[in-house]
Design a protein around this nucleic acid. Structure first.
Lengths: 262, 262
DNA sequence: TCAAAAGTGTTTCCAATACACCCATGA
DNA sequence: TCATGGGTGTATTGGAAACACTTTTGA
């Protein structure tokens, strides 16, 4: 399915389920750091997670894929629903950042639009949040109709965000840590070919702790999920590391029962 | 908060968020078997999970507690949101059981009610599902306005159920198994005092596999989360087991970081 | 004295960790 | 030849699992 970008957002409002939205915590990995895909709203300094609404006649998962494909150009995205945020106090007046952002955003609306949009965004929303994983290196994100920037933000330098998006990010981090053994982080977050220390750095970034390189290497090899390729000559004055790629068949099997990896 | 049972369901419909519902997979434990709390709809043989709708001005978690308190009489219920079901094809016409049950149910409605109720139940619904845990032995469940029976059904003998409730149960089972180390199963599912083999049988029921009694006992003791009490004299011709209770302080601490128990 | 379940002791195995040490690479 | 990571070897520890064995209970 595709986002219908010929029809204006305003005109599509009646086709959406009222009170239901979706948000996406998209983890990307580059420069050995976890990043999150974020949008900067039009005319503001406020950042937000990508999101969208649910057409009455569409499957939520398909809409989710379509929205993210629209943002990133990537199809075949890994997506996992992780929580539905439902607090009464998660509207645009829940904190200063949101209030200000919403005011600024309203200034970009015409007089005719204002009534409908105010009503729509003023509703109580329940938002189902998805976790997504992609290789930040090869994805150049695009803003949507409501924002003028879309970028990978390093997880250590998160800006102030609107609504309850900070809580969403926090919950997503808990989720990815808890389910690391069941999520295709190796396949979704890395390049096709990677070194063992790339992979280790990824695990360290997610789990937030250092590991022993020797032990990491042995454990990974034992799982039998990696194909070894040629060495990577970086020009650095040290032993050149092997490149690896993922053996999809074995990887899928391991993921099903949970990769045994602490 | 309390369910307002003076006002009829019909009159409360306008106060609900449209298109949003809640369902509950309530696990209970008795007779060494996992049970699920189920309702039998009025005038039908169709069973369903307990559920409800979300008043526009209420917190979902509070409503969840209120609904289950209404069903079971228990306050302080353990509840954990685990998934939001959103398929387009989860309405009352999604399968034969649901279609038939809905027809039978409609026969119990007055002419005046029919239009409103048809419209309400005919909507597309997104349903947020909660996992709950309680001691089935001490809970005598009550039917709600839509059903004439409410009972603990052994998990091995589940009847045919309406809508996507079977999928919900399956997902809830996956969830409880995956998160067993983070859920207060010992505290929520057992009596105040229990024997070690009660506890072991509970783990076995949830995980669906047998364990070695000796090893189980030693592992549990090492966690230091149990207080030992007097022996339980059953009259059986064998050594009497000690009774244990849970040391809440230690238990809470263990649950936070995940009880180390495979 | 016996059967049955509770509970303890013991052995074996393997994963996790720590860390020493060798290897390859370019300066 | 040196510094720097890559990668291997090895010793230690502790938990998991298997199972023999002892204890307690009422018949």
């Amino acid at each position: 399915m595709e986002i219908d970008s010929n029809t204006s957002f305003l005109n599509r409002i009646p086709s959406f389920m009222p009170g239901i939205s979706m948000d996406f915590v998209v983890f990307g990995y580059k420069e050995r750091t976890l990043h999150i895909l974020m949008l900067k709203y039009l005319n503001t300094d406020a950042w937000a997670l990508p999101g969208g609404f649910l057409p009455k006649d569409a499957e939520m998962d398909k809409v989710a894929h379509a929205i993210l494909e629209d943002r990133t150009g990537v199809s075949n995205i890994f997506l996992d629903q992780f929580y539905t945020f439902n607090s009464l106090n998660r509207g645009w007046d829940c904190n200063d950042v949101s209030r200000n952002a919403f005011e600024k955003l309203r200034e970009t609306w015409n007089k005719e639009e204002k009534e409908t949009l105010d009503e729509w965004f003023g509703q109580r929303f329940i938002s189902t949040a998805y976790l997504s994983l992609m290789n930040a290196q090869e994805v150049v994100p695009d803003p949507d109709y409501i924002s003028d920037d879309c970028a990978w933000v390093p997880i250590e330098e998160l800006p102030s965000v609107v609504l309850d998006h900070e809580l969403m990010i926090q919950k997503a981090l808990e989720y990815i840590r808890l389910r690391i053994n069941y999520l295709p982080i190796g396949r979704s977050l890395l390049e096709e070919k990677f070194t063992m220390s790339d992979l280790q750095a990824l695990y360290e970034a997610i789990l937030g702790r250092k590991m022993d390189a020797g032990n990491f290497q042995r454990k990974m090899k034992k799982l039998n999920m990696l194909n070894r390729h040629e060495k990577l000559m970086t020009g650095a004055a040290n032993k050149a590391p092997y490149l690896y790629s993922i053996n999809d068949e074995v990887y899928d099997r391991l993921l099903e029962q949970g990769i045994g990896f602490t």
